[in-house]
Design a protein around this nucleic acid. Structure first.
Lengths: 215, 215
DNA sequence: TTTTACATACGTTCTTGCATGTATGTAAAT
DNA sequence: ATTTACATACATGCAAGAACGTATGTAAAA
């Protein structure tokens, strides 16, 4: 399979990334060799080394493909927050679940990040970026909870920082559960109700009644 | 360092497990070789192969050292549940955080399980056991939430299964956050307040007021 | 004709598993 | 109380196979 034009080369690159995604999610990152990826893609290691410097470079490129999706969600949250913080958070929570439940590629990448790679050594800097990204996300949540507090949407004694931790934690926990092979948790159908329990402990009932879609 | 008696041999075994724990948590499981462990312990690979069949056997033995701690916590939960389910759950939640916060060995093992190993291949059966253990734990939580529902301790429309998911998720999420190097979350000091938000969305206020230690 | 997009071949570095060596402990026979 | 016989607790050496990086070959595109 010899690709000749630039266009076909781009296809080859995508194929390698898709194949890597697949193999990483099944065999784990450390157990998947560049030869495995090349062979599974119907190519040779030469092709891999043409498109990527090494395994780490390929790994980073693979993750970069899904970053925009998360940026989009965050932007939507920020723009909606000024009008109604509580509503913005609720919509955001459902958004996160919907995206993860509906896009297999996102699920595969999360699976690789959370359960198919070791967060050390060469991969450490990449995972550090992910953690930094997560902390930014948590800070965004904190700001919006602060807004909600200022507008008295939250229950008394709700601290914005801790509320952000709570929301982030329960989201991460649910994502983790849903990624287990056993499939003991279904993000699309159960996450809304689970989130509702937490929201009821954070926001006043008048606020909760006005959330759409219905809490 | 030649150990001659059985007693000294047991010490050597422990030393190897301690060393493995340390190295796994720093370098990751796949990047840590048996030679690394042996050398760091001041021994050779021969010693490792004497005490353990192979790397997998060593890994399992390492995990087995902390299993009793979790069993103890679960037993405490079950015995306390009959008298007062809500109180038992609250005490259990605080217990989990206290144990993890106070015992470095537990934290190291959790770190290895969650962020320093790939849940595939030879390690897969071990991690499957962990998942099974977790699901049993979730079922215990469900049963106790069922008790709480029966006694009208919970708010209306709280489903035991989903409540168990919620509690498990937020616990796992907090543990995950607390294990990050950045230390952006402190299990011992912040987890109680975060948990309180969820409990307020699950239990009636009369029940919450009677929880000790104070919610 | 040069560059692109790969394929092929080679050398090196780990890592593992096993086989073997050896010094010490231990229990029973004498 | 010795000696004998064997088990224990490691250390050392070797063979074999990954996996990687690189160097080189090659056919088509530009």
């Amino acid at each position: 399979m010899v690709r000749r034009t630039r266009e076909e080369a781009e296809q080859t690159r995508c194929l390698l990334l898709d194949t890597a995604e697949q193999l990483f999610s099944v065999k784990g990152v450390s157990k998947t060799t560049l030869a495995d990826i090349a062979t599974a893609a119907g190519l040779t290691r030469g092709a891999v080394y043409w498109h990527f410097e090494n395994k780490l470079d390929l790994y980073r490129a693979m993750l970069d493909r899904v970053a925009p999706a998360f940026d989009t969600i965050r932007t939507e949250l920020l723009t909606a927050a000024e009008a109604d913080p509580a509503q913005a958070l609720w919509a955001h929570s459902l958004n996160v679940n919907r995206v993860i439940a509906s896009e297999p590629q996102i699920r595969r990448i999360l699976l690789i990040l959370l359960k198919r790679s070791e967060h050390v050594d060469e991969l450490a800097p990449i995972h550090d970026e992910c953690v930094a990204h997560m902390r930014e996300g948590q800070d965004v949540l904190r700001q919006i909870f602060q807004l909600a507090c200022d507008r008295h949407q939250t229950l008394p004694h709700v601290d914005p920082t801790l509320a952000a931790c709570a929301l982030q934690s329960i989201h991460n926990g649910m994502i983790d559960l849903s990624l287990e092979d056993s499939g003991c948790f279904d993000l699309e159908h159960q996450a809304g109700d689970v989130l509702a329990y937490l929201y009821r402990g954070l926001f006043r009932s008048e606020v909760l009644e006005n959330l759409s879609p219905r809490l």
